[in-house]
Design a protein around this nucleic acid. Structure first.
Lengths: 238, 238
DNA sequence: GTCTATATTATGATAGAC
DNA sequence: GTCTATCATAATATAGAC
């Protein structure tokens, strides 16, 4: 029992509380910055609006992140790390039956991630319009490996006649556009379509539509119903 | 012969010259604003940088367009009018053999327009993030009719089994994303793909890839080679 | 770490000479 | 219509008290 608190005890408690609060505000600023940067891009976002949206005073932004540019960098690397972590669970998960199934699950993961965090797509898109060393780094270390691993799978799937023909990298751009566009224009799309994009059923529809565009049924060894034939039809390991 | 110029003559000539120069600067500002707004969006663009890029003094911007917001509106309506004019040539052109061919040519026109003027896509995209009466007007008067006319054609094509299944409006978003994304990230895409996006061959590839994703061969009344069967296979009018 | 106050710069807009 | 000079505001960033 600690009914008596020494001055040392209270000291320790206070330090912890302060550290906790500091970490809190840092996180709040980071989260708010993610939203604002994703919505408006870097230049059009002010550190004041970030601070206001985080419920803190604006000098705290530069105190915790050095500068607006520093905040931008931390937001980008953090968000990208989150994506890689989320996505890596699928990449390094259990071995799949074949390359096509693995590719399918990877792309499905990408679609669901996009639907769940549309601001990720917006932020990554805005990133492209800010050339500089950070963009180079993210492109080299992250995007390139993302493209490379998927390119292998796409080539394999194409060799089996189960993925649409064409340059794999080019196809990846088509796929990304397909998946993300409607979520990047969330408000407008909901008005035009007259339905919620957040609903379970819409996301399922979106997953199915996007995947069915790119995946093709195998070239019919037999003329069996396509869905059931899919798993049995292939037995290779690229 | 006018070897002798009365004071009235020179007066007229000077007025014309001034009007010409005025119209010129107006156009230069408009063109520069189109580029800058497309690249960076409204908030992130300064009227000074527009003026600099147009090679004029910055007060001329407000003189010709009242305000930055006024310039934005003129840019949007002008660009949209250009698009509608370009696109209308295909819509109200010769009657096509059937709905599927008409739909195909419309979408092909959209792809080629996007490849030729990638900044159009960027501007329209930025437009969506500036809610207001102008957005409402453009959406109601332009986008809605664009969506509506295409929706009809898509339904017709789907009924013939020659277009991918799904909600037509939803499919339009997929298509737009497919077509525009790679051009909206022009610089990055050229680096990743290692080829020029402006080349004739790339545009042709892009047209083919995008169209082939959404158009499907007819459900094989006979098992004839699909390409040749296309024109003969249908005889309806939605 | 957090707040108030402030320095500095960039921007949208205007005034007035030519 | 065009230019120079200038105002008013908003933004990034910092200084200094607590």
């Amino acid at each position: 029992m600690h009914s008596l608190t020494s001055s040392q005890d209270t000291e320790v408690v206070n330090v912890r509380r302060r550290q906790q609060r500091s970490a809190d505000t840092r996180e709040r600023i980071l989260a708010a910055a993610f939203e604002e940067f994703a919505e408006r891009g870097f230049e059009a976002t002010s550190t004041r609006s970030i601070a206001a949206s985080a419920g803190v005073q604006h000098p705290l932004v530069t105190h915790h992140f050095e500068s607006k540019e520093g905040l931008w960098k931390v937001v980008l690397t953090t968000v990208q790390a989150n994506f890689v972590e989320y996505y890596g669970r699928y990449v390094h998960g259990e071995k799949h039956e074949d390359d096509v199934e693995e590719l399918r699950r990877l792309q499905e993961a990408y679609i669901r991630f996009t639907a769940a965090f549309p601001n990720y797509s917006r932020l990554i898109f805005h990133m492209g319009s800010r050339p500089g060393p950070l963009l180079d780094w993210l492109l080299e270390s992250q995007a390139k490996t993302y493209f490379r691993s998927l390119t292998q799978l796409i080539k394999s799937a194409q060799a089996q006649g189960r993925y649409v023909e064409g340059d794999p990298t080019h196809l990846q751009y088509l796929f990304i556009g397909c998946v993300t566009r409607i979520f990047m224009q969330w408000a407008e799309a909901e008005r035009v379509m007259g339905k919620s994009l957040a609903s379970e059923t819409f996301v399922e529809q979106h997953v199915k539509l996007c995947l069915d565009l790119f995946f093709r049924d195998p070239p019919a060894a037999a003329s069996a119903p396509a869905k059931k034939a899919r798993k049995a039809a292939v037995s290779r390991s690229a």
